[in-house]
Design a binder for these strands. Structure first.
Lengths: 195, 195
DNA sequence: CAATAAACATACCAACTAGTATTTTTTTAT
DNA sequence: ATAAAAAAATACTAGTTGGTATGTTTATTG
């Protein structure tokens, strides 16, 4: 019961890669097993169907990584503005797994699947809410310590930051470049000084 | 040569509807001709292939509408902050053709097609640049009249507004609601007062 | 009111899709 | 080492995809 887990992980990793770069619908099961150097038998031994595989991919690959890079950096925050800027800046410029031309893996999936799919959506919504909650807590902590203004509305700031990040991803995609990220980050810094 | 133009328009209109709500790849030619109550013969008489049809749809349906709702409202601006807020607010809350669950038609296409497609991308990039240019001009005008701060960087503001709008669309999508729009707009108003 | 071309319909194709049934190989426990 | 079970390979199906070839109808013009 060890080798099996390995191949399962290979499938999930390759599925993540292909779905991130090409989208969910544009990634066929044949694509995934070919990239994994496996066959249909292996795929359907480990997963009931494409959707269940995608759900496992979300839970085992994408979501843990997003919690690491989007949520954890905001825990035990000292300087809210700096920590928020740092979180977004890392995601946009430094994260080794994300590329401008491919956008945000979470944003991509929401965009593509939100109108149609059911079971995948709740997983996407959950991690989105966790992210928002982390930002809200960070802002509220800053209000308590006096580093942020008392009038600042934490949820509004969270919405602003999340929206800005995802939109910047779109600009990066259409330009196939991280140049828009840098422009956005400059204005984000200005904005964070105003709250 | 009149009836033919009508059916061509029907195809483009239905294609827009289906692609907006389901995505480009998820919309088959069969879907489009069925919704148009036509057949393959009609489709391929008017268009060489799916991509050429999509390009015509962009040029004849989507882009003119976006120029109307995203670009024109910023021409001959009097109060930049109000006009920028009004443009975004209209798009998010009042536009009769856009729905929270389906996001922004332009954003959707960029998201889905940017990594892969070629010919459609330049059309998407062009209208995106037109939008940015309109915002930049609006901000620069505001700086001249003294309604906006002299230090304000027009391109940064444009990036901030575009990003925020597109990201808010994503939040609306995952929540299948316009509630995130309202939260975003409140913070946008704050932000616009700070520039 | 024909004739003729434009506009559209029908029938098809090869490639691809998710998924199944069956057989073979590989692990694992004894 | 070997039997049993797990893991993976092979071969297949029915439905869908974009696109083509060839009809048939409809509109337009002399």
């Amino acid at each position: 019961m060890k080798k099996a887990e390995e191949t399962k992980q290979i499938i999930l990793d390759k599925a993540y890669e292909l779905i991130y770069s090409n989208g969910y619908n544009a990634t066929s099961i044949d694509d995934i097993i070919h990239a994994s150097r496996l066959t249909k038998g292996a795929f359907y031994y480990h997963f009931k169907n494409k959707e269940e595989m995608a759900l496992a991919m979300l839970n085992d690959v994408l979501i843990p990584y997003l919690q690491e890079t989007m949520v954890q950096p905001l825990n035990n925050t000292v300087s809210p503005a700096d920590d928020l800027y740092g979180m977004v800046s890392y995601l946009l410029l430094d994260d080794p797994y994300f590329e401008p031309a491919f956008g945000c893996p979470l944003g991509n999936l929401i965009q593509e699947l939100a109108p149609t799919n059911g079971s995948l959506n709740s997983a996407l919504l959950t991690i989105t809410n966790e992210w928002e909650e982390a930002i809200v807590k960070c802002v509220n902590h800053g209000k308590k310590t006096g580093l942020l203004k008392a009038e600042t509305k934490a949820k509004q700031v969270a919405t602003m930051i999340m929206s800005g990040y995802w939109g910047a991803r779109l600009l990066g995609k259409i330009h196939a470049s991280n140049a828009p990220y840098k422009v956005y980050l400059k204005e984000l810094k200005q904005y964070l000084q105003s709250i």
